[in-house]
């Protein structure tokens, strides 16, 4: 989704109302229940969220950055049209436990970092890991890699994890956002 993304694709940016902000947080928590304890760290209560509308109905939500690192704004999540909210990789790196995770084997890292969808065999081979309980189709998962600590991508399941295990063929995860894509390299 963000393979090519640059400042030119931004149409408008606007501050959102605090009531909308509350709704956004509730929505995010309902999608990822595990983040409930940390939601105030993702979007602090007093902060002003800015909605950045982009090409192809992509909406980015940015907040003030808590740590001093030069740039003071950070995009914490984004949304395509009316789809599920998706956390950005910076958010995932901060709260890795909060999101459902899958793991790919080492051979697949290269392709994932190139933005390719993840094929089922890359998720079922010995180096890869799928959660024991079933995750349904269409859910957002964070993608980890064999031997690595941090997430390298976020994607949407194209089939449920049970199906991935049994069928073991075709696209398993549609990649949405990965290390080194346009959104990752975007800074305010």
């Amino acid at each position: 989704m963000f393979k090519k993304f640059s400042k030119e694709e931004i149409h408008s940016r606007s501050n959102i109302k605090s009531s909308v902000q509350r709704g956004l947080k509730a929505n995010f928590v309902s999608l990822y229940p595990n983040i409930e304890q940390a939601i105030d760290l993702v979007i602090p209560k007093k902060s002003q969220v800015i909605l950045i509308k982009c090409e192809d109905k992509i909406q980015l939500y940015s907040v003030d950055k808590s740590d001093e690192d030069g740039e003071n704004r950070e995009i914490v999540m984004f949304q395509h049209f009316n789809d599920d909210l998706v956390p950005t990789l910076t958010t995932i790196h901060k709260f890795p436990e909060a999101f459902p995770r899958v793991q790919v084997d080492r051979g697949a890292i290269k392709f994932v970092l190139g933005g390719a969808n993840i094929m089922c065999p890359g998720l079922t081979s010995p180096g890869a890991k799928l959660p024991d309980e079933n995750i349904e189709e269409g859910k957002i998962v964070t993608v980890y890699a064999e031997g690595k600590e941090h997430a390298l991508a976020v994607g949407k399941l194209l089939m449920s994890t049970d199906d991935i295990k049994s069928k073991n063929k075709g696209h398993g995860v549609e990649l949405i956002h990965y290390l080194g894509d346009g959104l990752w390299n975007y800074h305010d």
């Binding site: 940390a38 890292i109 690595k148 941090h150």
Partner: peptide, 26 residues
């Protein structure tokens, strides 16, 4: 409500990725 501290991740200043992925960078 117990607060969960955010994990701080070190990013490579050269390629901006977490250092463990540097080997796949350019």
């Amino acid at each position: 409500m117990a607060e969960v501290a955010p994990k701080s991740v070190l990013y490579c200043k050269i390629c901006s990725w977490p250092p463990e992925y540097c080997e796949f960078g350019s």
